[in-house]
Each structure stands twice: as structure tokens, then as C-alpha cells.
Amino acid sequence: NTSNDFEKLLEMASENITEENEGELIEQIRVYYKYALNGDIEALEKTVEKISSLSEINRKAINTADKVSKKFAVAGSWFVVFWAAGMFFLGMYYKRVFLKDIIYPYEEINAVLNANLTGDKFRRCSGHEAIDEINGIYSKINMILDKKSAGLES
């Protein structure tokens, strides 16, 4: 029974090879363990030595994998920090663009048209920070208002 159990364990170990030298050690254990189970002290020592080596190889591999995973964890944390900072500055940039190119021109045009409708003939669109397209719209609105004022005067 013990021999069968040992053989089953060796089979399981053979199907679970992940490291270098593991296969070789398993084969050496396979050679020695039968003699060890029959009471051969030298074979027993060899078997214990090989099993210890097999165990040690796997323990080292776990430590290495652990170190790698810790490095990944640190790298991941830094990635999240830089990503969050990047998204923050990107958000700030787009907020500024949104305000400068959409909201402020809309408010300016609305204010100018309201002023004109309530009798202020001199209020015109202005905004040196505006993009060219918005400045073009300002100019056209100002020209319409100029023409309207000139028409009213004549």
C-alpha cells in the first residue's frame, strides 16, 4: 500500500512539474524509494535528500514568484497614481477648453444681444482669448449690430 501511495504521489508530482530539475529529481526518487521502503538506509537517505531538494526548488520558486508579484503590485500602485494624476490634469484642460470655447462665447453673445434689445447700442462682442471661429462669429454679430445702429441713425 505504501509503495502504491508513493507511486501515486510521484505520478502527481510528475504531472505538476514547473521548475527545472524537478523531473530529474522525481526520476531519482522513483529509483531510490522502493529500496528505501524495503529498509535500505542508504536509499532512504538518498530519497530524503532528493525529496528535500524537490521541496526546496519549489519553495525558492514560490519566493521568486512572490517577489515578482510584489514588484507588480508596487508598479500597479504607481500606475494608478500617475493615471489618476493624468486624468485630473486632462480633466482640468478640457474644462478650460469647454469654458473658453463654448460657455464664455455663449454668455458674451447672449449679453450683447440682450444689451442691444434693451437699448444699449454700443455694446459689442469682445474676447481676445477666443478661438478664430468664435472671433469670426463675434465680428459678424458686431457688423450686424453696426449696420443696425447706422440704419437707425440715418
Partner: peptide, 28 residues
């Protein structure tokens, strides 16, 4: 990370097998 976890799991299983072999040898 899943790959690393897989490696750790496999090696841990091998260590478990080694421990069972030791137990069998001690019984003898």
C-alpha cells in the same frame, strides 16, 4: 498576477506532495 498566482499554486502543490512522501517514509 494570475500567472504568478498559478505558479505559486503549482509549487505549493509540489511541496504538499513532498510532505506526503516524507510522511510515508516516516511510517516505514
Amino acid at each position: 498576477a494570475p500567472a504568478v498566482q498559478n505558479i505559486i499554486h503549482k509549487n505549493d502543490r509540489s511541496i504538499g506532495i513532498c510532505e506526503k512522501m516524507f510522511v510515508l517514509l516516516i511510517k516505514v
